[in-house]
């Protein structure tokens, strides 16, 4: 267990190093001292006397009100990641799919087209650094997280990876989650959006078979569309299934191999990066204005 964070991911490795073998300071240092949002407006109307059962072998028992989200800890780490990314003006996406949908190939192609200087990648897999090696070959910085027995990335692992990753201000961070359409849906990593990748070699009905993921994502990339002539895949049906689970989901049809649809995908990415960078500029402008106002106040006080 990590002493600082109290987490139990004993087998997690970040770039081959056990996740917690190094010193780390959490920016969210508070969360160990008050992890329980306890102030609820409602009245706890428990009559202690009545509710206490006396189980055999156990002495006096009492009830403790908790009212805490099970994922609260993860969500606190995710917020810390989100704040850190906003500070740098980095647009972050959490890429999720089943294994073999073509996440890494699509990523490599995206980096080629967008330029490796503005993209950084966090790779999640149970084992090996194969994917991070493929990304590094494009020239973009990449950190590999091995989850060991874990089936998904969580915000805490990503926070550690962020400490090691070279992020360009105003750039793009792609977090390639473990290939799994189930668990990663529940874990916020601090990303702006989840992007689910479905390839046309899978079933059209995957969105309703794995609805949580398609509900959590705001964009679906329908990948490998260059193979459509060889398949009996019904694109409209796949999109209809996705919209049944998530009426608001946006869909882009792409092929990393032929390049089809990549323009639209890049436009989406550039728009997200521009929006995030603009938000940062605005924050900086507000801060500068505040500093200027304080300095003026100071001058006035001195005079």
């Amino acid at each position: 267990m990590c002493v600082t964070c109290g987490c139990g991911e004993g087998e997690v490795k970040i770039d081959g190093v056990a996740g917690h073998a190094h010193e780390h300071v959490h920016e969210d240092g508070n969360q160990h001292s008050h992890p329980h949002p306890h102030d609820h407006g409602h009245d706890h109307s428990h009559d202690q006397g009545d509710l206490h059962s006396h189980a055999p072998g156990v002495g006096q028992t009492r009830r403790v009100q908790i009212e805490q989200d099970i994922l609260a800890k993860n969500n606190a780490y995710a917020q810390a990641n989100r704040d850190k990314l906003a500070e740098r003006g980095v647009f972050a996406l959490n890429l999720v799919s089943s294994p073999g949908a073509g996440k890494t190939t699509l990523l490599c192609k995206t980096i080629d087209l967008l330029g490796s200087a503005s993209v950084a990648v966090i790779e999640g897999d149970q084992q090996t650094s194969q994917d991070a090696d493929r990304i590094r070959a494009t020239g973009a910085p990449a950190i590999q997280i091995n989850t060991g027995k874990g089936c998904h990335l969580d915000a805490h692992m990503v926070g550690h990876a962020l400490q090691q990753l070279q992020l360009a201000d105003g750039g793009l961070l792609m977090i390639e989650n473990v290939g799994n359409l189930v668990c990663p849906a529940a874990f916020d990593l601090g990303e702006a959006n989840k992007v689910v990748i479905l390839s046309v070699t899978e079933g059209e009905d995957k969105p309703i078979k794995y609805p949580d993921m398609f509900r959590a994502a705001s964009l679906m990339l329908l990948n490998k569309v260059d193979l459509l002539p060889h398949l009996s895949y019904d694109v409209d049906a796949a999109i209809a299934f996705a919209r049944r689970v998530n009426p608001a989901i946006r869909v882009i049809q792409v092929s990393a191999t032929s390049g089809q649809g990549m323009d639209e995908w890049l436009t989406y990415l550039r728009a997200g990066m521009a929006r995030t960078a603009a938000a940062r500029q605005q924050t900086l402008a507000v801060l500068k204005a505040r500093v200027a106002a304080l300095e003026a106040q100071l001058q006035q006080a001195k005079a």
């Binding site: 156990v58 403790v64 009100q65 908790i66 009212e67 805490q68 989200d69 049944r244 009426p247």
Partner: peptide, 20 residues
């Protein structure tokens, strides 16, 4: 129809503990 937005039923909370 399928134009539904989930508004409730996604809770995952520890409500209470009985302790000794």
């Amino acid at each position: 129809g399928y134009q539904l937005q989930v508004t409730g039923g996604t809770e995952l909370r520890v409500k209470e503990l009985e302790v000794a």
